[in-house]
């Protein structure tokens, strides 16, 4: 099974929400399956997504008012729930991306510290 392969990343708490928001902003309205597939593709299949978990994230974001949902028809004529990012969601996303950037910079600098004595 893929799970045992060390190359794949386990998602940090809260990162999934950010990925979902970013995906919706760049792709426009999508259904749950589409979002999950898109995240897998973008990550180059490095992220192991238990696709079912995407729905917990979606309902959370929806309750916060960052995304909205409505029932529609998919490209192959199936009834599906489409999610799209709201204006408030975009604002939130921008703030979170900035946070991530800062954290990533910081981590980069901490990791780059030279070893003792070298």
């Amino acid at each position: 099974m893929t799970k045992t392969k060390p190359a794949r990343l386990d998602l940090l708490q809260g990162t999934l929400d950010l990925m979902v928001l970013q995906t919706l902003r760049s792709m426009g309205p999508l259904h749950g399956y589409g979002i999950a597939r898109r995240i897998e593709q973008v990550s180059g299949h490095q992220v192991m997504l238990n696709q079912g978990t995407i729905y917990a994230s979606l309902v959370r974001l929806q309750q916060r008012g960052w995304i909205s949902a409505r029932w529609g028809t998919s490209s192959n004529n199936r009834k599906a729930k489409f999610y799209s990012i709201t204006a408030r969601g975009s604002k939130q996303l921008a703030a979170e991306i900035a946070d991530w950037q800062r954290l990533a910079d910081l981590m980069g600098r901490v990791v780059a510290l030279p070893e003792e004595g070298s």
């Binding site: 259904h31 749950g32 399956y33 589409g34 999950a36 696709q51 079912g52 729905y55 998919s74 192959n76 199936r78 009834k79 599906a80 729930k81």
Partner: peptide, 14 residues
């Protein structure tokens, strides 16, 4: 029920 519908759609799409 909503979620069940969504999951069913998910499986079909996949």
């Amino acid at each position: 029920r909503d979620l069940d519908d969504e999951l069913a759609t998910h499986v079909e799409l996949a």
